[in-house]
């Protein structure tokens, strides 16, 4: 610390309540930041994949196919759609040993088939169920770590709100993703407070805050108008 900061800390410590508040915020900023750092890294690294539509192959990608006979289907299958259909297919997916988040189910009416996409981060499974003979063809594709990060970054996402979060683990991921956002907001505000306390850094900090704001509003204005 430079002399100005030392003087400030000494002054701060002469006000015990203010000093305690500062220390609590500083420790919370540190520990909360450390706690969410792996989540922040997941979101930050996957940005490159999403922004450039580029998925590096980390680990071997493999595909397997198997057939499962006699999968149980709900009696009122043709009347079901959306979330009730997904819930109705849970037993069939369990029998076929395909856990994961179920996506949009496609009905191939002529072929009497249901195409059920199921996702686990890093794995995509397509279950094609022949309704007449209750046979399921399961194609599993291991897509790797980068794809897992992309799946997590986009989950649950804005589309298909009525069918999403049909697997407990993806529901749990949403809670964690939400918590990450709230904690990022907390550490950004607490970070501003911790910076503001350092008088020697105020001027440079204000310039950078202002420069960031000018860039942000300038870019968003240009994009809109």
């Amino acid at each position: 610390m430079n002399p100005t900061e030392v003087a400030h800390v000494a002054k701060r410590d002469s006000f015990p309540m203010r000093g305690r508040f500062y220390r609590v915020i500083r420790d919370l900023h540190l520990y909360v930041g450390l706690l969410i750092s792996p989540f922040v890294l997941v979101f930050a690294v996957s940005v490159f994949f999403l922004v450039h539509a580029w998925v590096p192959k980390i680990g071997a990608e493999s595909s397997t196919t198997r057939v499962v006979a006699g999968v149980p289907l709900p009696a009122d299958l043709e009347n079901l759609s959306g979330r009730p259909l997904i819930d109705g297919l849970k037993a069939a997916l369990k029998a076929a040993n395909v856990p994961g988040e179920v996506g949009f189910v496609r009905r191939m009416i002529k072929e009497e088939r249901l195409i059920v996409p199921v996702t686990v981060p890093g794995r995509e499974t397509t279950v094609s169920i022949n309704i007449s003979n209750r046979e399921a063809t399961v194609v599993t594709r291991e897509t790797g770590l980068a794809d897992a990060l992309i799946t997590l970054h986009k989950a649950p996402g804005p589309h298909g709100g009525d069918i999403r979060m049909n697997w407990f683990y993806m529901k749990a991921w949403r809670w964690l993703a939400d918590a990450t956002v709230y904690l990022v907001l907390f550490i950004s505000v607490s970070g501003v407070y911790l910076w503001y306390v350092l008088r020697a850094e105020r001027k440079v900090g204000f310039v950078l805050l202002l420069a960031g704001a000018v860039l942000f509003f300038g870019m968003t204005y240009a994009l809109q108008h």
Partner: peptide, 12 residues
């Protein structure tokens, strides 16, 4: 903290 301040609005 310089990068945090510069990116503040983008982060939000």
């Amino acid at each position: 903290f310089y990068s945090g301040l510069f990116l503040f609005l983008f982060l939000w």
